[in-house]
Simulated assay, not measured.
Amino acid sequence: MKKNQLLFFAIALLGITFTLQAQRGVRIGYIDMEYILENVPEYKEAGTQLDGKVQRWKADIEKKQAEIDLMKLTLTNERVLLTKELIVEREEEIQIKEDEMVAYQQGKFGPKGDLVIQRRQLVQPIQDQVFNIVQDIAEAKKYDFIFDKSADVVMLFAAERNDISEQVLRSINRVEKRKEATSKREKREIQQRDNLSTEEDAEVTKREEAIEEKQTAREQIMNDRKAERDSIRAAKKAEYDAKRARLLEIRQRKRDSVQAVRNGTPWPPEENGTQSPPSNALPSGGEEGDGGNK
């Protein structure tokens, strides 16, 4: 009896140990697909282009609807002047236009429309890439489960330390950098980054961001100084141009005055267009008076 109790206790203890080890050993991670997509430049650029198409499609639908509304209004105003046959013909034309608009709308925004298809085509390559990267991370980091936070899976709590979205995003960016790398040095630097752990890579990224912020601040200071120099230079140039214009005006007035004296015209000219007599002209009747005196 005592031996059976010891055996039962040993089996129970062994089972509890295995259970605790299994519970401690399970690693669960998650990603946020929406966050990843928002930070992939290619997806953002393609999404902007798709948004432009959507706006054009909406404008086309609004235009078609405006044409239909105008046809209905015209028919209402002219109904009393039309025969039954013409009324039926107009109504059929309106119905055809409405059917065409509905078909166009379904073709663009319906469940199987261009918007759904193109959005799927836009997301699918990135989703495939994320899936492959998640597989690699799961095998390298010994994760047992990795969920998508933005999917329909209900997650009542998710510790931030289990979020591997940044790792996935960095891997995607590295793939793009590999494609853009042309020199052996660039490829070697990318390979060195791949060999870093998550913590080391985050530290390197933080240092790079700090260097980039300093570079941006330095460039801003240089731009501000350049703008200040340009402003001072522009003010001096404006002052010089104004002074030069005044000197040219004075010089021209002197030339005009000399020319006026030579031509015997009054200077300065009167604004009302009347001319004053020349300064060397005699008063009217002066010569006759002098002749009489003589």
Rank of each mutant, 00 (worst) to 15 (best):
L13I: 13
L13V: 12
L13N: 02
L13F: 15
L14R: 06
L14M: 13
L14C: 12
G15Q: 02
I16W: 01
I16C: 08
I16R: 06
T17R: 00
F18V: 04
F18Q: 08
T19W: 12
T19Q: 05
T19C: 10
Q21Y: 15
Q21C: 12
Q21S: 10
A22P: 00
Q23Y: 12
R24M: 10
G25T: 02
G25H: 04
G25P: 07
G25Y: 05
R27K: 15
I28M: 01
G29M: 03
G29N: 04
Y30F: 14
Y30C: 11
Y30G: 11
Y30K: 00
I31D: 06
D32S: 07
D32W: 06
D32C: 09
D32V: 03
M33E: 05
E34N: 14
E34R: 12
E34W: 00
E34C: 11
E34K: 10
Y35N: 12
I36Y: 12
I36P: 06
L37K: 00
L37Q: 03
L37V: 02
L37W: 05
E38D: 15
E38K: 14
N39G: 00
N39S: 05
N39R: 09
N39P: 02
V40Y: 04
V40N: 02
P41I: 03
P41G: 08
P41K: 05
P41Q: 06
E42H: 09
E42R: 09
Y43G: 01
Y43K: 11
Y43M: 03
K44A: 11
K44F: 03
K44S: 04
K44H: 06
K44R: 15
E45L: 15
A46D: 09
G47K: 06
G47I: 01
G47W: 00
T48V: 13
T48I: 13
Q49D: 11
Q49R: 09
Q49K: 11
